[in-house]
Design a protein around this nucleic acid. Structure first.
Lengths: 114, 114
DNA sequence: TCAGGACATCGACAGGCATCGATGTCTGAA
DNA sequence: TTCAGACATCGATGCCTGTCGATGTCCTGA
C-alpha cells in the first residue's frame, strides 16, 4: 500500500521473529495467559519437590475440581506440565524446557532490542 | 478436602506468586498470546528506530487494516506499546518496562525453581 | 467383591475474541 | 474549501474458552 518514494519511515528490519516462530510460541503464552493457570504453574514450580498433586492444587483455589482439572489439562496439552499418576493420586511437574523456551523469547533480540 | 493425616504429599510452599500478582501479569501475557500480536511487537522492537508506523505493519500481514488496528489497540491498552501520532502517520513503540515485567516472571523463583 | 475416594470427561451455558466490511475522523495538499 | 489518504471505530458473525454440575473411570482398602 505504501509507495516506496513516499515511505513514512524506514523499512522494517529482518531480525523480527518469523510467522512460524510466532505460531509456535503463542500457544505456550496462551496457556499461561490465565491467572489460575499462572498460579498453578507457580505453585507446582515453587513446591519443595518440584511437583504437586491435584488434591493440594484444588485446595488453593475457590474453583470446582472439574475446573482445576481442565486448567491442568490445558497446561499439560501445551507441554508445560508433566503428568504422573501414582496410585490414587496424580502429580504434575513443570517442564523446565518449555518454560525456558518462553523465557528465551524475552531475552532474544527479536523482542528485547536493548 | 485432604485430611492432614492422610496427605498425599508435602504441603505447598509459600514462595509461589500471589493471586494479585497473577491477576496483574496475566493480561500482559494474554495480550502477547496471539501470533499476530507477537509478530507486531517483534517487528516494532526489531526495527532500527525502535518504532514502526501502522502502514508498514499492515503490509507485513495478510489481514485487514481494521484487524491490525484492533491488535495494536489491544497491545496499547495492555501497556505494551506506546502510541505517537505524527501528522498523518501513527507510530508505535514498545514499552521496555512492560516487556521487562513479563521477562522477570520467567527469571523469578516463583516460576523458575532452578 | 464391593464401596469410597481421586481425578478426568461430558454437556451446557455465558462471555470473550479474532476477523471482516463499512463508516467515521483527522490531516495535509491542492 | 475540497479531496484523498491514514488510521480508528462500529456492528456483525462465527469460533473459542472458563466455569459448572453430573457422570464416568480407575485405584485402594475392607
Amino acid at each position: 500500500m505504501t509507495d516506496p518514494g513516499l515511505a513514512c519511515c524506514t523499512p522494517l528490519s529482518g531480525t523480527a521473529m518469523s510467522a512460524e516462530q510466532a505460531e509456535q510460541v503463542a500457544p505456550l503464552l496462551k496457556a499461561l495467559a490465565d491467572p489460575v493457570r499462572l498460579r498453578l504453574v507457580s505453585l507446582i514450580a515453587s513446591s519443595a519437590t518440584g511437583e504437586a498433586c491435584v488434591c493440594d492444587l484444588n485446595d488453593a483455589f475457590d474453583l470446582t475440581q472439574a475446573t482445576i482439572s481442565h486448567h491442568l489439562k490445558v497446561l499439560h496439552s501445551a507441554g508445560l506440565l508433566d503428568r504422573d499418576k501414582r496410585g490414587v493420586w496424580v502429580y504434575y511437574a513443570v517442564r523446565p524446557a518449555a518454560l525456558a523456551a518462553v523465557a528465551n523469547l524475552f531475552q532474544a533480540p527479536a523482542l528485547m532490542p536493548s
